[in-house]
Amino acid sequence: MDLENEVMELITNAGYARSLVFQAIAVARENNDFAEAESLMQQAQDALSIAHHTQTRLIEMDEGTGKVPVHIIMVHAQDHLMNAIMLTELGREIIMLHKKVAEKN
């Protein structure tokens, strides 16, 4: 396993998920297009799943024994993943609120 490529894959997919969530929120807010927002959220979830699988491979490779060296880029990758997970959960709530507001108008 090429550690550098794995870490970059984690960062890339987590960042892509984050971008898709922001796009979904904007579509919900600006266009009230909740079908498109949901499609973007599903794409974000797919990217997040890939990132999570990458994280799982890294954890399995380490086996809790410190086999995987922890460098600042690894910490950075984990930070990206945690932020993307939180934003995805928050994004769903924000879109739901936009939908409720749109239904009342």
Rank of each mutant, 00 (worst) to 15 (best):
D2M: 02
E4S: 11
E4F: 04
N5F: 05
V7Q: 03
V7I: 15
E9L: 11
L10H: 01
L10C: 05
L10W: 03
L10S: 02
I11P: 02
T12G: 04
T12R: 10
T12D: 03
T12K: 09
N13A: 08
N13T: 08
A14V: 07
G15P: 10
Y16G: 01
Y16W: 09
A17Y: 09
A17N: 10
R18K: 15
S19F: 12
S19Q: 12
L20P: 10
L20T: 08
F22Q: 14
Q23S: 14
I25V: 15
A26F: 12
A26D: 14
V27M: 12
V27N: 07
V27D: 08
A28I: 13
R29M: 12
E30C: 06
E30V: 11
D33V: 09
D33A: 13
F34L: 12
A35I: 13
E36W: 00
A37W: 01
L40K: 13
M41N: 02
M41C: 07
Q42M: 01
Q42G: 00
Q42R: 07
Q43R: 12
A44H: 04
A44Y: 05
Q45R: 09
Q45S: 12
Q45F: 00
D46Y: 04
L48F: 03
L48Y: 00
L48Q: 03
S49W: 00
S49D: 10
I50T: 07
I50E: 06
I50W: 00
I50L: 09
A51I: 05
A51E: 05
H52V: 00
H53K: 13
H53L: 05
T56I: 06
L58F: 01
I59T: 09
I59R: 05
E60T: 08
E60N: 11
M61H: 07
E63Y: 06
T65F: 12
T65H: 12
G66C: 08
G66A: 10
G66K: 10
K67L: 14
K67R: 15
V68N: 06
P69M: 08
V70W: 09
V70A: 14
V70L: 15
H71V: 07
H71C: 04
I73H: 06
I73K: 09
I73W: 03
M74T: 12
V75C: 12
V75N: 13
Q78N: 14
M82Y: 02
M82D: 06
A84F: 05
A84C: 08
I85F: 10
M86T: 13
L87M: 13
T88W: 07
T88Y: 13
L90A: 11
L90H: 10
R92P: 02
R92K: 15
R92F: 00
E93C: 01
I94R: 03
I95W: 01
I95Q: 02
M96H: 12
H98S: 00
K99T: 02
K100I: 04
K100P: 05
K100T: 10
V101W: 04
V101Y: 11
A102P: 03
E103R: 09
K104W: 07
N105H: 07
N105P: 01
